[in-house]
């Protein structure tokens, strides 16, 4: 059994995690089709992650690199609890705030403000806590008066900025960021990076998935490299990123 002293410094613990997705070509989308295609279904399984084990220390900045389809986003989703591992165990200690792909978890029909409350509720925060954070969320996002308009009319930039703003202003203990910062303009990117730095110095654990290897080298304490669902290496950012880049530029 794990010793409490050691366990308490690890924010995320991934032990022998494998994730299998079920893929079906031409999956029937109605009962009628299902009956007609009975016995002729083409079901395949894809292992997005295979026996991945790693630990992320509390308060550290962890980077994940790898090609498209290497399992980075899947691993992040598992950490966020959106998916469950097929095998193995994943433990995240503390409130997880995730910013996955473009836009995070907004309900298109609700206004920005309502979505902030809804997101807060999903993260376990009450209305009072969210109301207290509302001003800084609106400020940071630069959405302005549009906060009371339904988010479906937002531009993709506004959508993303509000998503990021919520994710970082709810005092997350673990912040998962998937590539999103690349979408905003230069000025917003800078603010995001600054904000992540200040969160980290406040004790927040940050996991960043990025194709920007320069950014990963600059920000991260440790980096993991995923290749075809396997964890190729994990450790010092420069070493891992160099190895990844050498591999990436090799002719296949």
């Amino acid at each position: 059994m794990s010793e409490p002293t050691r366990a308490s410094v690890q924010a995320v613990e991934v032990s022998d995690v494998s994730k299998r997705f079920r893929l079906e070509l031409n999956r029937p989308t109605s009962v009628k089709e299902a009956v007609l295609s009975f016995g002729r279904r083409d079901v395949r399984h894809l292992w997005a992650l295979r026996d991945v084990s790693l630990t992320i220390d509390k308060g550290s900045f962890f980077g994940l690199v790898g090609h498209n389809g290497s399992g980075k986003s899947t691993l992040l989703r598992l950490m966020a609890g959106i998916h469950r591992p097929t095998e193995g165990r994943i433990t995240a200690r503390g409130r997880v705030s995730a910013l996955l792909e473009l836009g995070s978890g907004f309900h298109p029909e609700l206004t920005g403000r309502e979505n902030v409350f809804l997101n807060g509720a999903m993260l376990g925060l009450g209305r009072r806590q969210m109301a207290a954070a509302m001003d800084s969320i609106i400020d940071f996002s630069g959405v302005g008066d549009q906060i009371d308009a339904p988010v479906k009319i937002y531009s993709s930039g506004m959508y993303m900025r509000l998503g990021f703003s919520v994710a970082v202003n709810v005092e997350p203990e673990i912040l998962l960021v998937d590539e999103v910062i690349a979408v905003g303009d230069e000025e917003f990117q800078q603010r995001c990076l600054q904000h992540m730095e200040s969160l980290r110095s406040g004790g927040t654990t940050i996991v960043l998935v990025s194709h920007d290897t320069g950014l990963v080298r600059e920000l991260c304490d440790r980096v993991g490299w995923l290749d075809g669902g396997h964890l190729r290496s994990v450790g010092d950012p420069d070493e891992v990123v160099d190895a990844y880049l050498v591999h990436a530029t090799e002719p296949t």
Binding site: A80, I82, E101, G105, H107, E109, A121, M122
Partner: peptide, 12 residues
Amino acid sequence: DGVSELRKKIYF
């Protein structure tokens, strides 16, 4: 249906 897209991006 109203929340299925949302659920793919955040756990609840």
